[in-house]
Design a protein around this nucleic acid. Structure first.
Lengths: 259, 259
DNA sequence: GAGTGGTCTAGACCACGGA
DNA sequence: CCGTGGTCTAGACCACTCC
């Protein structure tokens, strides 16, 4: 059986076992035999099928995972990834609108809303005094029934009195505007490929140390005051960042040039 | 010995072996005992030290690798990562300038410059006819003696006659401007966490299937014509994307509003 | 309770890098 | 040549999910 698979996949070419498994699964996925959302056979089954051990199978699956073609859910199994959400951090579009515009279903779960002291280097990043008080809103966002984003917002409390009584499962952008008269102005965001740790890993159904894409952003309002900071942790296979840039000159123009 | 390490690291808390190794190394790195660029002990040595097997050690190292704290060079060993380069794909700053401004050393190696037929979906992405001819320039870029970026440029040949005779180890931006009178205008870029495949993996000294950050960009000139497309593959631990956004309204303004 | 991945053992041989 | 990671074997027990 193994020899048949080997021959079918690579007449005349030698492939080691790991590569063989990867290539075979890649073809099945590309060809549509394994459709997005489908569950792969159990690791033990694949080991028998390819006449190898679970370790080797796991290595191969991990590589496809790194590529974003498949993902795992802890102790539930391996699944074929769905298309990535195309996401532009420069536009504060509503998550639900964005997801719906790409023919997917969206859901937001509020995990926490609490007063905290600015953790770690956050106060400095936001240009606030050390030990400043902030409101922390923590949410999990799901696409097609799968949690793909863990996000914490840190708000300046003096700008958002009573926000804890609002419905936080909806767009914060909208709430800021409607209830507090604050529009987003400029912002700065950082994108950093790293690994999931702590609560984010659990919420995203990931093992500690799984690769994720961290996006952090500091937002200013229409009067150029810091409003809030948000820290997003995306499942790395679930997103593709797309930014349209107007082309920035190498010498900075005075900001009055383009109001 | 193992019990000593376990006690020292986590008095009263149970850690599994993998987590123990990760925590121990993380502390050594954070504390500066293991400085950036330093080589870790061999996997076999770590296995003895932590009284476990190479597989477990490798699992732990892979997680620190995913986090970006350490990296491997094939069959040479594991090393502590240097700080990430902060990179803004929206500004076409010269690579060497950018790297020097962050107190690092830069080097560019030209791997290829050749005429090709637009591969795959590239012609469509650039808005060109299928099977259009393009010039492909392929380069490897190094920071502090380590290859961290593999980049392919695809140029419209009619805009760049004779470019193959130019010095391509320097800034293409500068060359476009100086020799061909083309300035970059707007652009669109995509950022996608994925895995290294093919030539990129070899050049970056990565095993096939290692996680990388792919950045692809389509560039327009001052007359809003497509100039070129570039596809960057970054070692995922070597870079952090940072973009300053002016704040984009949700409804698109006519482009004449801000010339 | 059955099935799944998570973790781990205790080895082995190979291929490449570097002196 | 030696040291390194790359790859692989053939199992084991555990913790969690789902029925």
């Amino acid at each position: 059986m193994l020899e048949l698979i080997r021959l079918w996949n690579s007449p005349g070419i030698f492939l080691n076992t790991t590569t063989l498994i990867i290539d075979t699964l890649r073809r099945q996925i590309a060809g549509g035999c394994l459709a997005p959302g489908h569950k792969l056979p159990a690791e033990r089954e694949l080991a028998v099928l390819f006449d190898t051990t679970r370790i080797t199978v796991k290595d191969a699956l991990s590589m496809l995972e790194a590529e974003g073609l498949i993902y795992r859910e802890e102790r539930r199994g391996w699944f074929v990834s769905r298309p990535r959400l195309i996401y532009n951090p420069a536009t504060r579009s509503h998550f639900h609108e964005l997801v719906h515009s790409q023919q997917r279903t969206a859901e937001t779960r509020v995990l926490a809303c609490e007063a905290v002291v600015a953790p770690g280097e956050l106060a400095a990043e936001m240009g606030l005094a050390p030990l400043s008080r902030l409101i922390r809103i923590c949410r999990a966002r799901r696409i097609d029934e799968r949690t793909v984003l863990y996000v914490e917002h840190f708000l300046r409390p003096e700008l958002f009195p009573g926000i804890e009584q609002q419905d936080l499962s909806r767009s914060l952008t909208e709430l800021y505007r409607r209830k507090y008269g604050l529009e987003y102005g400029r912002s700065r965001f950082d994108i950093c490929p790293t690994a999931a740790r702590g609560e984010a890993a659990g919420v995203l159904n990931l093992a500690q140390g799984s690769p994720v894409l961290a996006v952090s952003r500091i937002n200013y309002d229409q009067f150029d005051r810091v409003i809030d900071c948000d820290r997003e942790v995306w499942r790395h296979d679930a997103v593709r960042i797309r930014v349209e840039s107007r082309g920035e000159p190498r010498t900075i123009l005075p900001s009055t040039a383009c109001p």
